[in-house]
Amino acid sequence: MKMGNQSYFKVLIICLIAIIGSTHAQLQPGFYAKSCPKAEQIVLKYVHDHIPNAPSLAAALIRLHFHDCFVKGCDASVLLNSTQTNQAEKDAIPNLTLRGYEFIDTIKSLVEKECPGVVSCADILTLTARDSIHAIGGPYWKVPTGRRDGIISKAADTFTSLPAPFHNLTVLLTLFGNVGLDANDLVLLSGAHTIGVSHCSTISTRLYNFTGKGDQDPDLDNEYAKNLKTFKCKNINDQTTLIEMDPGSRNTFDLGYFKQVVKRRGLFQSDAALLKSSTTRSILAQHLQSNEKFFTEFGRSMEKMGRINVKIGTEGEIRKHCAFIN
């Protein structure tokens, strides 16, 4: 009886290992090596042909990838169009300033010409985000492939899943924790704010009416706030003016954002939140010490993010066009 139990447990363990192994085996480097060997090269070539001429798109594409992964996982659901009966993620308020859809669509069409119905939009978005950041001098990280595309996209899901510029540290850590990311990932991925721009409307409350009494956010450096009010966001109703998240180097992937944050010049409340605990302050200080270390660790967090709730095997589908389910 004892020997029988031991044999049973051995078989059970072997089966569990096999199941776990098969789950991860489908998300792997070079997933399309046989089915579409030129896929990754097509993505890379298009990115390197176009991003140097439009470097601001790198920020847009990594943001698109981030907004996709945090809602239902990295399944390209953010790329789906709304229908008469469903408002999709891309039309939710938090996503109205997203861009880069046409860029992804063009790459998808090129890949489809090479290998119809083989490469997912989810993989194309993930690869494009990585290649775009690298094209402007940022880090390079591994992108295992094999994701499949989701067929559900609901605007309402963005409000409960996406970290927002006005969130405090507790909420940010909760939302990151919900998708398997930790405080280190929060700080590192916030580092992507070293590139790109935002709108004055995103920070108008911080500047003009933080507690509803016509006041300014005390966590915001006075000199920086004064500069923004004088030269950029001149009134609380400005909906159109763009502001750099890392002034002076919005197209350069570097430590500039972290340097701004420690000076209390992070643009968003979510940036200022990184100074609210000894844990996140310590992580911030560590990454300020070395550009090389930041690049390496940022890449690891991006690879980790790219694995959030991926669809593999027979889940979802391989869309023919990224904006529509088949």
Rank of each mutant, 00 (worst) to 15 (best):
A58F: 00
L220W: 02
S282I: 10
G180L: 06
Y101L: 03
P163H: 10
S204R: 03
L127C: 08
D91T: 04
T170D: 07
H67P: 00
Y140S: 15
H67W: 03
D238H: 04
I152L: 15
G306A: 07
V47L: 00
L288F: 05
Q41H: 11
R281F: 09
K108P: 01
G30N: 04
A183V: 11
A155E: 04
L98D: 02
L228S: 07
K263D: 06
L189Y: 02
L274S: 07
D131P: 04
L207V: 02
A192T: 06
I203T: 01
E303D: 03
V111G: 00
I19E: 12
M302S: 09
G177R: 15
S278T: 15
S277Y: 14
S161N: 13
G146M: 00
L284F: 04
K154W: 11
V179L: 05
E297T: 07
N222M: 13
N95Q: 04
A33C: 06
G191A: 07
T23F: 15
K142M: 11
M245V: 13
V78S: 00
E315S: 15
L220I: 05
S270E: 05
A122G: 05
Q26S: 10
I17D: 14
Q87W: 07
D149E: 07
H50I: 08
A33Q: 12
N227A: 14
F70T: 01
S77E: 02
E317C: 15
I124V: 01
K276Y: 15
L80S: 06
V43R: 02
L172K: 09
H193Q: 10
S82Y: 03
I20R: 09
C233T: 07
N237M: 04
V78D: 05
V118S: 10
A192V: 03
E317G: 14
